Amino acid sequence: MVKEVYKNIYTFQVVLPKSPLKATNIYIIKDRDKNLVLDTGYHTQETLDSMLAGLADLGLEMSDTDLFISHMHADHSGLASNFKSAGCKVYASVADGKIINDAANGSYWQLLYKLLDYFNVTGGETMAHVFHMVKRGQVHMDEREGVLYFTKLDDKYDPSWLKSV
């Protein structure tokens, strides 16, 4: 159900399947020349269907809008590629934009797999395991020149393995 929250600003919910959140709020700023969608929900068919239905209730199609991603969580950015494919401009912070572009061109995933390999994370373990290692003091995070490096505490600082990505 679409609700006008202020003149030319609307909100509706898109479903978040298999999430305890159940749904997230989407905001639309309507203008006669272009419209702006704030956030998207997950990258699932159910979320896409509810996004398209909400836009249709406003007399819009995805291609009638641009997209602003508030931050890089899956429940806020999941449908970004759908908007891009529809010819929309996608706006995000510089940091989030880099993550989005790196995920799209594969370098993010290459880095992730290098991190998993570097920390011997296998099987059912995930990046969460690496962050638990950080929390327990088994690894050190160091931000130099705007890049976040992970080093094992028993290693000398040598992020050369990371530079090849």
Rank of each mutant, 00 (worst) to 15 (best):
V2I: 09
Y6L: 03
N8V: 11
Q13C: 01
K18R: 15
K18C: 13
N25C: 00
N25V: 09
I28L: 07
K30Y: 06
K34F: 14
K34A: 15
L36P: 09
L36C: 15
T40S: 09
H43V: 00
L48V: 12
M51V: 02
M51D: 07
D57L: 07
G59P: 02
E61R: 10
D66R: 02
H71P: 00
A74F: 10
S77T: 08
N82V: 01
K84G: 12
K84W: 15
A86R: 09
C88G: 04
V90W: 08
A95I: 12
G97L: 01
N101G: 14
A104Y: 11
G106C: 03
S107P: 00
Y108I: 10
W109G: 13
W109Q: 13
Q110T: 13
L111W: 00
N120I: 00
G123S: 13
G124F: 15
E125W: 01
H132Y: 15
M133T: 06
K135S: 10
G137D: 14
Q138D: 04
M141P: 03
D142M: 09
D142R: 06
F150C: 01
T151K: 06
L153W: 13
D155L: 03
D155I: 01
S160D: 03
W161Y: 05
L162V: 04
L162S: 09
